[in-house]
Structure formats: C-alpha cells, structure tokens
C-alpha cells in the first residue's frame, strides 16, 4: 500500500533548487528541475550521510555539500566520486499548486 504525502507548494522550491522534506523517521530531498518538473530522492548522501538539501543543483545533478559527490536526481544514479551507491527515488506529482510524494508503507 502507498500514499501520496503532501510536501509543499510548487513555488516553495525555486527552479534548479532543492529542499528538505522530513516524514516520520525518514528524510527526503525534493527537487525542482530547470524544466519545471519535480523529483524526489533519499535525503542523505550515500557516501557520508550528509543532507543533500544543502547541496547545489546543476541541471539534473545534485552535488553533495560535504564531499562534492554527485547524483542524477531524476534517476538516483551516482555520477561522481566519492558517491558510489545510488540514491533511492520516489514518485512525485503536482496536484493543483501542491507537490506530493508517494511513499510505500
């Protein structure tokens, strides 16, 4: 079973930027791409557990603020060392002006 969880308003995230979203014990990074689409990944870098919401979004890449490891946030794929393991990604939809993320229970 899965639920759509309300995250934020669409204009809470600038284009080519990211915010942190915590839900229960889990933390996520929610992205607004340059094309206006929204994406969601695990919030913590797979290298050293640093939150990616403090990082830099460049096109479809999120760069970790601590060690400059990079991921493609549309696929979760690690693209630059020291990040080796991929990020989990989650479905996102926009309902009206709200961004929602789908989480498995």
């Amino acid at each position: 079973m899965s639920d759509w969880i309300d995250v934020c308003a669409t204009d809470d995230i600038e284009e080519e930027d990211v915010i942190r979203f915590d839900h229960g014990a889990r933390s996520f990074a929610i992205y607004h791409s340059p094309e206006g689409e929204f994406f969601a990944t695990d919030g913590l870098c797979t290298h050293e557990q640093v939150h990616l919401a403090d990082g830099l979004v460049m096109d479809h890449i999120i760069e970790c603020p601590k060690h400059n490891g990079q991921f493609n946030y549309t696929t979760g794929k690690a693209t630059r060392l020291p990040a080796c393991d991929h990020l989990g990604t989650y479905p996102v939809r926009v309902e009206g002006d709200r961004v929602q993320i789908q989480l498995s229970e």
């Binding site: 290298h47 050293e48 601590k66 060690h67 060392l81 020291p82």
Partner: peptide
C-alpha cells in the same frame, strides 16, 4: 588521495 581528502573533510 581523492579518498584521503574526502576523509580529511569528513
């Protein structure tokens, strides 16, 4: 040394 420096920052 790339990994050594990552550790230095951690």
């Amino acid at each position: 040394w790339r990994w050594s420096h990552a550790r230095h920052h951690t």
